[in-house]
Write a protein that binds this DNA or RNA. Structure first.
Lengths: 337, 337
DNA sequence: CTGTTAGCGCTTTCAA
DNA sequence: TTGAAAGCGCTAACAG
């Protein structure tokens, strides 16, 4: 491997000058600078990032914890993160946690062993092990979408889940629906609570009675959508409208209902959440909530970099705007269903 | 930050002993080891990975170049990569290249600046800049799915694309189809050539005439599928069966054909490639080629680690088995269409 | 503007 | 089995 030494030799200068010419060119005379550049060129020198990181104490990378890499919604966030990070000269260490605490601890540990300067978390769990909790105090952490549980309040980039499900609920109520079902994802998260609250709030003002046993599910997957659809349709008071807490669930629900001979939206209306790409291209196209996932990812990077750089945050919680997409999977209630 | 020094102080030993106790515990007496462990515990010490990397010259990370993070098929590969890497104690630096050479060069550069020990490429381009080409000689590189173009032949993990499209073509020919259309992804890749060859081969033996102008498209996206479907249906000799070179394209094609009032598979058969998750849940479920994406990702890690460790490779090209999934988007030809 | 020098935190000889 | 000491490749005072 060619190191500074080699460049020094070729350019006939000291290591300090090489380092300067590369990092702070304005501190070096034009002709020396040229000599150094030429030497770098000739030798094919690449500074060893690790070595400089040891010196400066900054790794210039961020670690991102994702509960499930195959969720397309997360991918949109990550794309935003990756782009913004890259623009700021940071690289992204990606860890798929599968929601397993052990893996979260391990990956989050990278930021404790100086491999990353900050952490972006796409889940609601406290990512460090109990052992590391006190060390984690000084670590720049931001969460996207989910609020991290625990004593310390971490900055969060999120959607107004409450308002979003409210508008979804209003949309369905306006269509005359009175009997609802919900297929949930993770039930123990703040998101779940917020979304549920939005729905129940509308029910309350509209005088719609809703029974907790009309909430089924418990994972953000297509299969859960299928299962949930079957469970809901087996109830004696089966719903005419179903809230799915993400689009994957909605995809499974739509598939399964159609398989059961139930028409959408003529018999049952289905709404999703997230607006993943395919949602617009299924049959029928899905009514859903569009989240600015990409921008939220970008913003998460900005915020974590602010923390890293010691810039005080204006606010600890940033709420991004949603957009309700009224497509063809929802429609007027069918009184005969 | 707590460093070795602190542990030394607490345990009353030298830095060398601490280092040994942590990396090669067997070189240290049981009681010293215990003292060190206790000191580590108390101080909450975390070794600075960067510092050790500088010494050892190994970063224990791999960089992965993805042309498009939002392609679900790539995500399956990456999931495999991430898991395998993690099991081997490696972390994954992920770079979304958007197919832009500039970004590829920049990200691939990480492996030249000691930030990563090897590179896994999910595209067919030579990832280094012309400038870095000679440096790249010594870099462990593996490609998955696509063969990297250029003088040097890099190891590759791929599918038998030729055989896969052959069986897809046979499947359609058996259904009586004679008029075909193809909606391609990237046209300048080896994959494209292989897949095309497989199809044409079957056409040749079956005596089916095929005109190059029945090949449309040029990007692996849903939108390209829509566009391609429109283009194909506008031809005077419109096809009764369409090969889509990935499932995203097929999704768009199915959507657009249905929108045009064309029934699938009664009027037109559509087949995809990749078997992304949603393919089984659209209407109709998609006939496609299942690629063992996850395993291919895992294998890529094994191979790149072999190169890193200097273990000679048995073969430079590994072909993974495909599996044709005959679902409902393909069926008997409709002579009246 | 440039060179000398002293480390960053860790690993690894070499001697004891 | 342990410690002293010499670096890994780079950066950053401090002099000059």
């Amino acid at each position: 491997m060619t190191t500074v030494k080699e460049v020094c030799r070729l350019a006939g200068v000291s290591t300090a000058t090489v380092s300067r010419a590369l990092k702070n060119p304005e501190l070096v005379s034009a002709k020396t600078r040229e000599r150094v550049f030429k030497a770098v060129q000739e030798s094919g020198y690449r500074p060893n990032m690790l070595a400089s990181s040891v010196k400066t104490g900054k790794s210039n990378s961020l670690v991102v914890l994702v509960p499930n890499l195959s969720n397309p919604f997360f991918m949109r966030i990550i794309q935003g993160i990756e782009q913004a990070a890259h623009e700021q000269g940071y690289s992204v260490l990606l860890g798929d946690t599968q929601g397993e605490p052990a893996r979260e601890h391990e990956i989050a540990g990278m930021v404790l062993s100086n491999r990353a300067d900050g952490l972006i978390h796409l889940d609601h769990s406290f990512p460090f092990s109990a052992n590391d909790a006190h060390l984690a105090e000084r670590v720049p952490v931001v969460s996207v979408c989910e609020r991290i549980m625990g004593d310390k309040e971490f900055p969060v980039i999120e959607l107004d889940n409450y308002a979003a499900t409210r508008s979804l609920a209003k949309h369905l109520v306006n269509y005359g629906h009175k009997k609802f079902g919900i297929i949930a994802g993770q039930r123990d998260s703040q998101i779940h609570l917020d979304r549920l609250a939005g729905i129940k709030d509308v029910f309350a003002t509209e005088g719609i009675s809703f029974n907790e046993d009309m909430i089924v599910g418990g994972a953000y997957s297509i299969e859960m959508g299928q299962q949930g659809a079957r469970d809901l349709m087996a109830k004696e008071n089966r719903p005419t409208a179903i809230f799915c807490f993400n689009d994957d669930i909605a995809l499974g629900t739509v598939f399964e209902l159609k398989r059961m001979g139930i028409r959408i939206p003529q018999d049952v209306s289905v709404v999703g959440f997230d607006n993943i790409k395919v949602s617009a291209f299924i049959d029928p196209p899905l009514t859903t909530i569009d989240q600015p996932a990409h921008d939220m990812g970008r913003r998460a990077v900005e915020v974590v970099l602010q923390i890293i750089k010691g810039v005080p945050l204006k606010r600890n919680r940033e709420i991004f705007p949603y957009n309700i997409l009224e497509r063809e999977s929802s429609g007027p209630v069918n009184p005969d269903f």
